[in-house]
């Protein structure tokens, strides 16, 4: 990687997710590739978390603003649909940042090859309360404040919290 590309990558890595601002796009696993073509044209590859995630447009705008602000002339943000994003790509640092912000990080993503089995029981997860650490938690809703989160409640400290759901 050229020195310019390394610098562009460092700038792009600083951009945070608009809905999970404690996570950088690199920690979220959304940043696929950063390259500099020619003298000062940056090409960034990102991948969508969910098909309809409205944060994608904001991520693109933030990348363009940060990179042009860092002195690059032009920025092209490309979307890679394949392979599909999985929560397994959230880095250990990203998981720690989520927990520190009171959001329970995802467990291992289920396999999605072959036929997907029907599940009639609430998804069984070992979720610990990010506030008090208690394993005594219950699911409130499989759908939380954003497409990527489920709602939980801690039955020890009674605090509600978000859990990033595994996909």
């Amino acid at each position: 990687m050229s020195r310019k590309a390394e610098r562009a990558r460092r700038v792009a890595e600083r951009v945070t997710d608009p809905e999970l601002p404690m996570l950088s796009l690199a920690d979220l696993g959304v940043l696929r590739d950063v390259d500099v073509v020619g003298d000062s044209h940056v090409v960034v590859d990102i991948t969508p978390t969910y098909s309809g995630c409205p944060a994608m447009a904001a991520m693109r705008d933030d990348l363009v603003r940060e990179l042009t602000g860092a002195g690059f002339d032009t920025v092209e943000v490309r979307v890679s649909l394949h392979p599909a994003w999985t929560t397994d790509w959230i880095t250990p640092a990203g998981r720690a940042a989520l927990a520190a912000a009171g959001i329970s990080p995802p467990g291992p993503a289920p396999s999605t090859s072959g036929p997907i089995p029907l599940s009639l029981l609430p998804t069984a997860r070992q979720v610990r309360c990010p506030q008090c650490g208690s394993p005594a938690t219950e699911l409130v809703s499989e759908f939380g404040s954003t497409a990527c989160k489920a709602q939980y409640r801690c039955t020890a400290c009674l605090e509600p919290f978000d859990h990033v759901k595994e996909i």
């Binding site: 098909s51 649909l81 392979p83 997907i116 996909i167």
Partner: peptide, 8 residues
């Protein structure tokens, strides 16, 4: 690619 994402 749409299908792979859509399945989840």
């Amino acid at each position: 690619a749409v299908a792979a994402k859509g399945v989840k």
